[in-house]
Design a protein around this nucleic acid. Structure first.
Length: 290
DNA sequence: ACGAGAACCTGTTTGC
DNA sequence: TGCAAACAGGTTCTCG
């Protein structure tokens, strides 16, 4: 989501919603009342992110909250910000869409048109995504945000914090990392990668991690996320960046989706295993992760 | 109160 | 080849 935010920010900041086309009444939840009317004519002041939520602050003192769920995409089209000309055919080739088809593909649920001709299409075939409109001053108390843990890249997230947060947890550390109340914004891929990077078994109970392991884990979480953001994210299959190109971090996975392949830790000759924890796939090396 | 599993929904891949 | 089962990036609800 951070790479999505970074891609959208220069194109949307300061732009006004000229037209909003909401094609269905709900995603994971119903759209808020008067969704189109409350957006149309408003200007986007800032684009922020909290956990996996994108936050567009509007000049109406409301915030448009967007979550992409498992399969959501934000597809960007419109004037080229560098050349100030219309997008080239090459751009649309990359996006995999014919010019006239942008906003007309299956599962294009919302089309946002801005005053400068920029178009953003929200596409989500599984509809686990969501959108909401929330007053600026109600964000912190909103149902979606109460109880969220610290941002993993912020100063509040440290081994000191982890020591405290994990001490009473009976669940495996893998499940604890996915618990958004412990730390916000870690998904299945990055939980697996951070545990491998810190050489901690995903099966280890969270309460046994405080100490030397938490001191490795907190920096590992940060570095995995930093590396992934620098590489443009981890798009798999149809989950692509806003310009239609793929993120590159998936080429750097040490464990995720590498079942049966050799562990890449220097000096380790283990093979990557796949197990299921809390209904989610976990990939890890049973030899170097303890 | 906590943690595991099911549910939400559609599309793709895998296995018989 | 065809069909059914398994599986997929996330979150929330229910049940024990």
């Amino acid at each position: 989501m951070e790479t999505v935010r970074r891609a959208l920010e220069p194109r949307l900041q300061g732009r006004r919603f000229a037209r909003v086309d909401q094609r269905r009444p709900d995603l994971r939840f119903p759209f808020p009342d008067d969704f189109v009317a409350r957006l149309t004519g408003r200007t986007v002041e800032t684009l922020r992110r909290r956990a996996k939520y994108l936050l567009l602050a509007l000049d109406s003192d409301e915030v448009l909250v967007i979550h992409l769920g498992m399969s959501g995409r934000m597809i960007l089209a419109g004037p080229d910000p560098d050349t100030k000309r219309q997008e080239t055919a090459n751009f649309h080739h990359q996006a995999g869409r014919a010019d006239s088809a942008i906003g007309e593909a299956p599962h294009d649920h919302v089309v946002f048109d801005f005053d400068d001709g920029t178009r953003v299409v929200f596409n989500d075939h599984r509809r686990f995504g969501l959108m909401d409109l929330v007053g600026q001053d109600q964000l912190e108390t909103h149902k979606l945000f109460v109880g969220l843990g610290p941002e993993p890249l912020g100063n509040a997230f440290s081994h000191v914090y982890l020591n405290d947060a994990l001490r009473a947890k009976q669940t495996p550390i893998k499940a604890a990392l996915l618990d958004q109340r412990v730390v916000a914004g870690i998904g299945n891929i990055y939980a697996c990668e951070a545990l491998h990077r810190s050489a901690i078994s995903p099966k280890r109970l969270a309460r046994t991690v405080p100490g030397v392991r938490a001191a490795r884990l907190a920096p590992a979480v940060k570095s995995v996320l930093e590396d992934a953001i620098a590489a443009g994210g981890s798009s798999l299959r149809d989950y692509v960046q806003t310009d239609g190109s793929l993120g590159y971090f998936q080429h750097a996975f040490a464990v995720y989706d590498r079942e049966g392949k050799p562990c890449q830790r220097p000096g380790c000759d283990g093979l990557i295993q796949r197990i299921v924890q809390s209904g989610r796939s976990t990939f890890y090396c049973g030899k170097c992760q303890r």
